[in-house]
Nucleic acid binder design. Sequence first.
DNA 1: ACGGGCGCTATACGGTGTATCGCCATGAGA
DNA 2: TCTCATGGCGATACACCGTATAGCGCCCGT
Lengths: 230, 230
Amino acid sequence: MSVWDRPEPPHPPVPLDRGSIIAAAIALADEGGLAAVSVRKVAARLNAGPMRLYGYISTKDQLFDLMVDEVYAEIVPGERPGDWREALRGLAHRTRQAALRHEWLADLLGGRPALGPNSLAVTEATLAALDGLADVDTVMRAVETVSAYFTGAIRREVADLRAERATGLSKRDWQRASGPHVTKMLATGRFPALSRAVHDGTEVAAEVSFATGLDWVLDAVAAKLARPAG
Amino acid sequence: MSVWDRPEPPHPPVPLDRGSIIAAAIALADEGGLAAVSVRKVAARLNAGPMRLYGYISTKDQLFDLMVDEVYAEIVPGERPGDWREALRGLAHRTRQAALRHEWLADLLGGRPALGPNSLAVTEATLAALDGLADVDTVMRAVETVSAYFTGAIRREVADLRAERATGLSKRDWQRASGPHVTKMLATGRFPALSRAVHDGTEVAAEVSFATGLDWVLDAVAAKLARPAG
DNA sequence: ACGGGCGCTATACGGTGTATCGCCATGAGA
DNA sequence: TCTCATGGCGATACACCGTATAGCGCCCGT
């Protein structure tokens, strides 16, 4: 009997802490979506029994919150932005990039108030970049408006991306070809404006559409920051 | 033995169709949130066995899609709007109202492309209201931008509302009192701009904040519709 | 050396979505 | 009118889920 046959010591396989639990959960979610994250599977990936996790987290929903805050670490601005516009634009684009790296983030974005340390750091940096440009309330409104825009835009983009992946067709091609249900609907003639939009519209890259809408919203914010009463 | 003792005829209790399944699911979701919607519970509410539903629905996710489209029926505009701005503002407010009546809608909004007949009718009416004001691509961008804004804003509002309900504290009061974790974070002094915003900011009604941000975005759209190249 | 506490595991419970199968009632054909 | 096929429906079953509970075993302080 060689050493190889000696059974593994049963219990302390890896010290385990919150951080590695979160990392394992994120890895699972990156691979198979949020649905692939179960307490049992996270535990298995850490060579632990399922109940062991409950010493470090209190509930599965809390684990989701922790995952979100962990990703917010990728969103914290690296260097001080040139001006408020650059700060907000950067925030939007970094959030979008994070959501493209971790698509499950789109499912969670805006679903719960983000109060983890990294989320707070992002908010702090954002508010700091707008500090003094207008009264506090106007600044808050500006941040909330821009955040609402990019949250919604990111969600839609990821939803479309998944649909494309599922059908194998780009949104544009997708109704003429064999979009099984929508083609029929458009053919009924009950949606003339929609049909025209689909037929005549240019297919534009998601990032361009995101950036365009973002610039519009930033223009609006600029106008209000200039005249706080607006 | 009276008639009352006669056993119920076992099988045809209610004819059952897609519509009543959707209605039952919506009722359950209105009462207990999306988590309260399970195939078994929907079936039970219709005096049916769980598997019976699968003759009318192919999957639980599809049931969610059908629920969303059903609610979109409440969002279809009633009369022809005065102008494009009124059309978009009305769409935003009707969507918000629907989400306040059916909070679970916030969990689903933007999560999947909305392709049901009512969703398409909403899109059709919206595009029709903007038809001819600019080139097709600009119009699309306008609708997408406004939709992204109110989707994100509604999600945040509902998330805050739930947090308030869970803690019993309004977002404003909530950190000084016993917001157990955030108070401590703010007290560290690592978030001066955030602290100032929380301390000096005015508490504003959710609808006002929604409408204000919406008007900003509509102003931006107005500017772009005027000069399609913008 | 011993005792207490704590971290961990095993077990268990009530629930989930849905595949499979077999029954029974109904409608068609002889 | 009798018979047979069909199709909708129920029961059953499977794999999995989140988490409450209880008890085991190790480590540390004394």
